[in-house]
Design a protein around this nucleic acid. Sequence first.
DNA 1: AAAAATATTTAAGTATACTTAAATTTTAAA
DNA 2: TTTAAAATTTAAGTATACTTAAATATTTTT
Lengths: 219, 219
Amino acid sequence: MSVAIENFVKAIYNNENQDITNTKPGNIASKLGISNAAATDMAKKLDAKGLLNYEKYKALRLTEDGEKMALNVIRKHRLWEAFLHKTFDMSLHEIHREAELLEHETSDFLAEKISEYLGNPKFDPHGDPIPNAKGEITTEDTSIPLSQAKENTEYVISRLMSTDKEFFEFCALNGIKYGNTLTVKKQFQSSKMTQIKIYTNTIVLNEDFTQIIYVNEIN
Amino acid sequence: MSVAIENFVKAIYNNENQDITNTKPGNIASKLGISNAAATDMAKKLDAKGLLNYEKYKALRLTEDGEKMALNVIRKHRLWEAFLHKTFDMSLHEIHREAELLEHETSDFLAEKISEYLGNPKFDPHGDPIPNAKGEITTEDTSIPLSQAKENTEYVISRLMSTDKEFFEFCALNGIKYGNTLTVKKQFQSSKMTQIKIYTNTIVLNEDFTQIIYVNEIN
DNA sequence: AAAAATATTTAAGTATACTTAAATTTTAAA
DNA sequence: TTTAAAATTTAAGTATACTTAAATATTTTT
Ligand SMILES: [Mn+2]
Ligand SMILES: [Mn+2]
Ligand SMILES: [Mn+2]
Ligand SMILES: [Mn+2]
């Protein structure tokens, strides 16, 4: 299958997992940077291929085959990210950029090699789950955004939900990294800011950041 | 530039370095598995782009820009081969297959990371030279095919010029590997066979193999 | 030096993945 | 509930990278 098709089913999959009613051609089009007309064309084509169900004016729904394809591409994307981060120490922004291309030119054979080399990781450096070779995600996500965390409680960082370069640069500079530990000190109700302590540093984050930094409470 | 263009200039470059007079559309076409007509079309297009000089019925000649592009792709190809061989222990056949795809989706940035990680190697696992980031090949090739080697002389294996799976499997099983040492025991003139000793094994190779295994004499 | 064989080019056409513009349908607002 | 706004679809067209078939040029053989 072509790069265009793989990116298309991946965009639908990612969208369905957030907002199922809005998975319409126009929405996918704007995510992929193509015209609405192109997205409608593609939707019809993929319906004919059995990768999704297309009904005029309705939301797009991936078939089982379509979802399998999406998860296969996502697996390769996240394995590359994990690999490039670990082996070449590339930043959270760089790894995404490279993985977006490499994911389409990676055989299942090579994906397995990467996975084995890394010890079959279950999460990528953004905290996104890595599907297994069968296309299954076996982990469950219990994490909450930092904006909803309790005061005076210790958390481990579980996910950084962004693709923004500056955000990742901020994180890298301040030890905000998947797996690291932080303590929530105070939630400022009116200003919607969150004060955290990470290592010896105290940082006050605004809502833009506390809604994309996800954490798990340490028992 | 597209995958089709990159593969096209690469095929011309590789061909020019062997048989300059025969670098015509039909020859490139058969190497790429496309029709002669498609190759002629592409040649005209790349002439317009300034990557090669096309004159009806004449051999294709890369321009400086075209050669630079070819060497950039070849660099990425060979870096991937070196990397996959070393890091994932993939075979000489597998690394070529994967590199053929990855070479087109690799940024200069990532290529540099791979190169640094490997210690800026000058040769890939087939013994092919790896151009530097400027597109220069600084090494010179003094190797000769095993068919022309002297009897009772020690050589180091410097190049395995093939893309054939079975040949590489044979090599892997018999210690015929870039950098390994062997001794030429006898050249059978009439049958064009070569008897070598490698480690403790004695092997007799026919011309098919001794013309694609290159060696350098050990001083 | 012709004739035959081979290679190259031209012409016409296809599939994919897009575009813009117009028509249509849905959704939201008045 | 009618109207206005927004989204979706249809229609027509483009660029890329191919194809096959026919025309033409080159190369080889006789
Ligand atoms: Mn992608
Ligand atoms: Mn990720
Ligand atoms: Mn290639
Ligand atoms: Mn090689």
